[in-house]
């Protein structure tokens, strides 16, 4: 039995529309037109305990809706969903006691209270027994280096500091699953690294299942074993990052710096993409000619200063993926 089971999930909303300008605003006072927005059309996937899954997709793809449904805030229009054997929106109180959620754009701490007071209050809210709470809190404080922040009101923390406190707040009750919605948004580089490192350790060492939505492809690269790509409310891909990459990019790039003038190469299945005086950018299909063979062929005939194979960046992979998908649909 998977820990998270999502089957044929769909969700639509009605939103009010109005014509622009004064006339539109005035007529909107009297009568409204409604438009149906299908945030999720058909989404199915499952997640085993201890997995770390990244949800990727452009704005409006349905990521946030999915997280909201999974965390019990929203009720789907149709479809089946179970988290740890519970239907989140049916059994909200029991469900949320077992999950942790961090929204990158929102705080769950009390703005005007010191961090520690907020933790205490959360322990009361989640009914964490005092000694379990103390143990868990001390552990998180050490892991996230929160000690110097505990006495400060939340409003005085920097975003990076606050995010660390948010993580601790979401984990005080020892949840089995952690939902992260854009957890690194707006953070500086060291804070991003710290968050990624923490999430990874949490997943590996404490076996917490993590479901992450993000725009930051470095998050995906650093964290996720498995990626789900959604677009327009549908699941477009569900695979490992490597498989995703090779599925959209048949070709790889090879950069070669020559010790002499760049030669005219003629190797089967290899194309010259750009050329400067002493370097070449080559495109090749690893299925036809594997990288080691190609490199051997080049170095056998020419003096080479430097050579490296380039993997397409994940942004490119995703962008290309959407391109392919759109053209496939059209």
């Amino acid at each position: 039995m998977p820990q998270v089971l999502v089957e044929a999930l769909a969700k639509s909303y009605r939103v009010a529309e109005r014509a622009p300008g004064v006339a539109g605003a005035l007529s909107g006072l009297l009568r409204r037109r409604w438009r149906e927005v299908r945030a999720l059309v058909d989404l199915s996937f499952s997640l085993e305990a201890g997995e770390l899954l990244a949800f990727v997709g452009p704005n409006g793809a349905g990521k946030s809706t999915t997280v909201k449904i999974l965390s019990g805030i929203l009720r789907p229009s149709s479809g089946r969903i179970e988290v740890g054997g519970l239907v989140p929106y049916e059994d909200r109180l029991r469900h949320v006691a077992r999950v942790g959620v961090v929204f990158g754009q929102r705080s769950q701490l009390w703005w005007d209270l010191p961090v520690l007071d907020g933790f205490d209050l959360l322990a009361d809210i989640y009914r964490v027994t005092p000694d379990r709470y103390r143990r868990r809190r001390d552990e998180l404080v050490a892991l996230l280096r929160l000690e110097p922040l505990l006495a400060q009101p939340v409003r005085q923390l920097s975003l990076g500091q606050r995010m660390r406190a948010e993580f601790a707040a979401a984990l005080l009750h020892d949840p089995e699953i952690l939902f992260l919605d854009e957890p690194t948004i707006g953070l500086d580089a060291p804070s991003k690294l710290a968050v990624r490192d923490f999430v990874k350790r949490l997943n590996r060492e404490q076996n917490v299942t993590v479901l992450l939505t993000t725009h930051d492809m470095h998050d995906v690269e650093a964290l996720a074993e498995r990626v789900i790509v959604i677009g327009q409310g549908r699941l477009l891909a569900d695979s490992s990052l490597d498989r995703l990459r090779s599925s959209v990019f048949a070709e790889r790039r090879l950069w070669v710096d020559f010790a002499e003038e760049a030669p005219a190469l003629d190797i089967q299945g290899v194309e010259v993409r750009t050329r400067t005086a002493r370097s070449l950018e080559l495109a090749f299909d690893p299925a036809k000619i594997p990288a080691p063979k190609l490199i051997a062929a080049i170095t056998a005939e020419h003096a080479v200063d430097d050579i490296h194979v380039e993997e397409p960046a994940i942004e490119e992979v995703i962008a290309r993926f959407y391109d392919l998908h759109d053209s496939g649909e059209a």
Binding site: G21, A25, L30
Partner: peptide, 11 residues
Amino acid sequence: FLLLLQYRVAA
């Protein structure tokens, strides 16, 4: 002005 006119119910 336009933004607030939208709040029909509030009016």
